[in-house]
Design a binder for these strands. Structure first.
Length: 234
DNA sequence: CTCCGGTGGG
DNA sequence: CCCACGGGAG
């Protein structure tokens, strides 16, 4: 029947993911994402945070707010140079200016939050992906954190952490990993919300490119901390 | 695979 | 000083 839904990932079990979420919440406390004022700001933040630290996004958002540009119509009608200047701290300011504009146009065409909320998740996802500048992760950020749909967001941190744990290979496709987590935890918006936020926190603070395993709340069960790091290392 | 990019941390 | 950052498009 479904040709788009990948089969569940064997290494991603409900037990493991529930354990992961519990351990991370115990270590960081609840993250209660998304850190934005309004649902529209979630869409803006989702573009601005592409390959960019959130601290820089916050400054860009504040400058948009001050300039009166934190509004879909204002963003579309504004001089692109003014938008680019406002979001400069977030980097990629020229591409992101175009992407914000593209997203705002679709947002208005689709009837803003009210109109889009009426659509089924898969249809809405396709509409978001059709926007130039919105890829799978950005679309899923929006679906989960603005529309509260039970969609799990896979990012670079997710891959790195799950791979080091030894639960996945690491080269699986995006949809495979998303589907794997979703199948294991069931359609649970609150769990997907918190798990992704916790994964980001761990990826930033502990499970970094050079991992700080001694400080990691997962090290007792982690293949990487146990020394199973892949590669020809001695 | 390459480009887009300012900013804070190591 | 270098590098990594809630990615995506051409």
């Amino acid at each position: 029947m479904s040709t788009t839904a990948p089969r569940p990932h064997p290494g991603l079990t409900e037990e493991r993911l529930a354990w992961l979420l519990e351990r991370l919440v115990a270590h960081h406390g609840e993250q209660h994402w998304w850190p934005a004022e309004t649902a529209f700001e979630v869409l803006v933040g989702a573009i601005l945070t592409q390959n960019t630290a959130w601290s820089h996004v916050e400054r860009a958002m504040e400058q948009l707010r001050v300039a009166g540009l934190l509004d879909p119509v204002a963003l579309i009608e504004a001089d692109p140079e003014e938008v680019a200047t406002a979001i400069r701290p977030a980097g990629y300011f020229n591409v992101k200016t175009r992407r914000l504009r593209n997203l705002c146009i679709t947002y208005l065409q689709e009837g803003c939050m009210e109109g889009m909320q009426l659509q089924r998740t898969e249809a809405l996802r396709e509409k978001l992906l059709a926007v130039n500048g919105v890829g799978r992760e950005t679309a899923d950020d929006i679906l989960l954190y603005a529309f509260h749909r039970p969609v799990f967001v896979v990012d670079a941190y997710t891959r790195r952490i799950l791979q080091r744990l030894g639960w996945i290979q690491g080269d699986e496709g995006y949809e495979r990993l998303r589907g794997g987590v979703e199948a294991a935890l069931g359609p649970n918006t609150a769990a997907f919300n918190e798990l992704h936020a916790q994964i980001v926190a761990l990826g930033k603070d502990t499970c970094r490119p050079t991992p700080r395993c001694p400080d990691c709340p997962l090290n007792a069960a982690c293949a990487h901390a146990a020394g199973d790091a892949a590669g020809p290392a001695a």
